[in-house]
Design a protein around this nucleic acid. Sequence first.
DNA 1: TAGATTGTTAATCGATTAACAATC
DNA 2: TAGATTGTTAATCGATTAACAATC
Lengths: 223, 223
Amino acid sequence: MFNDSISTAALRRLPLYLQYLLEIRPGKHEFVSAARMATALGIHHTLVRQDLDVVGAKGFPKKGHPLEETIAAIETYFQWNSRPSAFILGAGNLARVLIGYRQFDRAGVDLLAAFDQDSRKVGTSIFGIEVLSVTKFVDLVRRMHVAIVILTLPPSAAEESVKLITESGVAAVWNFMPATLQFPDRVVVENVNLFAGLSILKKKLTESLNRKEPANEHGNGST
Amino acid sequence: MFNDSISTAALRRLPLYLQYLLEIRPGKHEFVSAARMATALGIHHTLVRQDLDVVGAKGFPKKGHPLEETIAAIETYFQWNSRPSAFILGAGNLARVLIGYRQFDRAGVDLLAAFDQDSRKVGTSIFGIEVLSVTKFVDLVRRMHVAIVILTLPPSAAEESVKLITESGVAAVWNFMPATLQFPDRVVVENVNLFAGLSILKKKLTESLNRKEPANEHGNGST
DNA sequence: TAGATTGTTAATCGATTAACAATC
DNA sequence: TAGATTGTTAATCGATTAACAATC
């Protein structure tokens, strides 16, 4: 059904295509060209075509890609083959942001519950996701066959988090904690560094200013 | 002073080195080897050496890299050459997370204030950062020569955000909003997609399960 | 000295872009 | 038909890994 291999780079772009297509859906057009998507998203048009091909979203010469079918193709791609369950460990502000965007379903992941140490949070719910006591975490991961844990605790809870993850035997961790965590080798980890983009932005900014006013030429080699 | 060119990939790794070094600082060792950093962070050891070289952090054969000097080298690298001011547009949960991590200073950016439409938030402060009315935003960007705006408003505010950014004439946008925004060409943009990592994690998870139990062989070509 | 570790250059790999053929 | 657009293959580019020399 799908072109069987996909690069991680493509995997990052697919949600952007989907987002863009959903945004223009209310419009009157039934088809969208790869070139138009490319321009809107700042991605090379050939790359857009290659990526859409991977998820099996066929286009038509002279017309473009059918909007609805392309949306369906991308959504199906993410749902396809597996739909793991997830818990979110830490019911703070970041958990609130992630749950609020409601993209778990679209990414093909079932978010079942949140966990927190704070007894004031336990029993409440965040956009329909219940907050449970962290004492139930290990047991529930096992009993409910939860595959993914999303770590949104503060860095001070690093040690405790590694212990909980390891004991629970969960297979994969999506880590937002700004700390260097050492999990057992069997655990699949994807680290998210919220601040990584800032230094890249600063670099781009400096470059763009240098391009406009190449004045300051007193001996620093920054580009 | 610094090796003058740096790849964006290296720029993403530097904060990880810094984080790791700060974590082990309380320990007894004065030196740390590239190999040890590499193992802890899951990065190739040669790459660690190349990256440290870029920021001018010298190492010593047989000893390794001096902990304090290496920390100082990375911090100096980010501070060096420019220290732009920033506003954060949107004083919600995500703003709270970003401000709470206190990494702006370390990244060489001065966060001056937050802005929100909600009059209940105006006048409050988030970890010492004042929340001002969004009506003052455009004027203050200009008067205070703010270079970077951090967009943490919900996607429903997409149109309004583009208007504010464009009117203010700010040079760079660090965008956390899950929406396809079209800024004037002169604006430097770095988009952060909070959910991008989830599909990559799902892919890694599927691959690791396939490796362990290559049972399910009924005709799907996923790898 | 021998060995551990850095630092540098070359080879490989993966991802993007360019060129162009296919098609409606 | 001519032209717009897709789809595919080849060329280029950038980033990672491997090989190895330098050094304390």
